[in-house]
Nucleic acid binder design. Structure first.
Length: 419
RNA sequence: GGAGGGCUCGCAUAGCGGCCGAGUGCACCGGUCUUGAAAACCGGCAUACGAAAGUAUCGUGGGUUCAAAUCCCACGCCCUCCGCCA
């Protein structure tokens, strides 16, 4: 949710932001108009209410005939108050509905444009040149006894898979390495709930445009989270954080569930795009003035991870049209996937400034004022895509796979052998 | 799933339908006193919107009433017991 005051004072900035995102610009006039109506309805209600409170008090002390007369006018006033109250509630809901549709104001440094208009910030490492025909991760997964997509489909449908043997071991190693390094860096490790209530889902902004991608269990009215960003962000919902403790950093490990509606043709092979996967997510609550620096720090931790995995990658500055509605800037890291001859997204970090915290009502005391904190999130490791990157980049001609040095202590071996 | 009990300002509690935005104790902050501290004493101490007046908030939502922390209903959460269960 954007700051209504900011909107009132800087409608042009918000308008430009909406335009850059390719989103509805007219919503701004609607929101402002609705807000005016809201204010006057509120004012009317409050004036009437004040009158009623006063009158009610005089009823209490009045006696006999006087009381009867007062009661009569009080009754009439009560009806008017009720009417004004209904109207106020209505106007508030309408104003809020418009305001909620406005996305976060983009960072002026974010590239303007559509999905393909991202800017490459840097390339790290060089795509490996193979002196043999590299196999894709599905084939390697079979040879190593690591990934079984066929049985996954049999048991759970498309976009499902089993990680078996070294595949499962690799997940544990990745999670271990990620959590251990995050813990060292000062993150509090968290295993959050993945089944959350509507207010958590709503507050984090996943019931907007992203709604069709979340699983909803109707019978119990709970949602399966698509990322631990949801329970991590909602963790401090309705709280006032201690300023001295900021930034508060959490590393959440959880399973993520995604319906992947509308992606029928995309990435149907392998485990690049699946309905369920595990992920270690970084989440930070910080002072709004610190958000930009914090964002770069999250990016650095992501890079550190990729470097440790010895995988070539590039960092992109995501274009305005491809930002989530809560983010004002987003950096993606794309790992080189040899058999696709392309860089593919493996991690992503977003600066949500105060946008998400405002919705979730997460604040801190800044001197005397109570203000919304800034929230930021970033992937440390999303398991399946990392497995894809590792298997494909570190494969040998015979289908065995070399294990990056950083993971060796967790696996007790230097190479995955054929089964 | 069944039967009870409870949800009030950081914590613990008080609260008669109007005098309750709400008392008390503890904690906390400022001061007096003290060489310093403790104790004692004095003062302060919820949030949001608003320039202010004011309005709203006693788990949440509805209802009754001129008037609701207080009465009624629904829901949520916590606790105890029974059943089931990793």
């Amino acid at each position: 949710m954007i700051d209504i005051k900011f909107l009132r004072e800087n409608p042009d900035v918000v308008r430009a932001s909406q335009k850059a995102r390719g989103e509805d610009v007219s919503i701004i006039e609607k929101a402002l108009a609705a807000d005016e109506i809201r204010k006057s309805a509120l004012d009317q209600f409050e004036t009437l209410r004040a009158e009623q409170n006063l009158l009610s008090k005089s009823v209490a002390t009045a006696k006999g005939e006087e009381k009867a007369t007062l009661l009569e006018s009080a009754k009439a006033l009560a009806a008017k108050v009720k009417e004004a109250d209904v109207k106020r509630t209505q106007c508030e809901a309408e104003a809020k509905a418009f305001i909620m549709q406005i996305s976060n104001v983009i960072d002026p440094q974010a590239p303007i444009g559509k999905e393909e208009d991202f800017v490459v910030i840097e390339n790290v490492g060089k795509p490996r040149v193979f002196d043999f025909e590299p196999k894709d991760h599905v084939e390697l997964g079979k040879l190593l006894g690591a990934i079984d997509t066929e049985r996954g489909a049999k048991v759970a449908g498309s976009r499902s898979y089993y990680l078996t043997g070294v595949g499962a071991m690799l997940e544990f190693a990745l999670v271990n390495y990620a959590i251990t390094s995050a813990n060292k860096a000062g993150f509090t490790p968290v295993i959050p709930p993945v089944l959350v209530n509507p207010s958590a889902m709503e507050g984090t902004g996943f019931l907007g445009q992203a709604a069709e991608n979340v699983y909803h269990l109707e019978k119990d009215d709970v949602y399966l989270v698509g990322t631990s960003e949801v329970p991590l962000a909602a963790m401090h919902m309705d709280e006032i954080l201690v300023a001295e403790k900021l930034p508060m950093r959490y590393a959440g490990y959880s399973t993520c569930f995604r319906r992947e509606a509308g992606t029928y043709g995309k990435d149907t092979r392998g485990i690049i795009r699946v309905h369920q996967f595990d992920k270690v997510e970084m989440f930070s609550f910080c002072h709004p003035d610190q958000a930009k620096e914090e964002h770069l720090r999250l990016l650095q931790w992501e890079k550190d991870f990729l470097n440790a995995m010895e995988i070539p990658y590039r960092v992109i500055d995501v274009a305005s049209g491809d930002l989530g509605s809560s983010a004002n800037r987003k950096f993606d890291i794309e790992a080189w996937i040899p058999t696709q001859d392309a860089y593919r997204e493996v991690t992503s970090t977003s600066n949500c400034t105060e946008f998400q915290a405002r919705r979730l009502n997460i604040r801190f005391k800044d001197n005397d004022a109570t203000k919304a904190v800034a929230t930021l999130n970033g992937t440390l490791v999303a398991i399946p895509r990392m497995i894809v990157a590792i298997l494909e980049n570190h494969q040998n001609a015979d289908g065995t796979v070399n294990i990056p040095a950083a993971l060796q202590p967790f696996l007790g071996t230097k190479r995955f052998e054929l089964v």
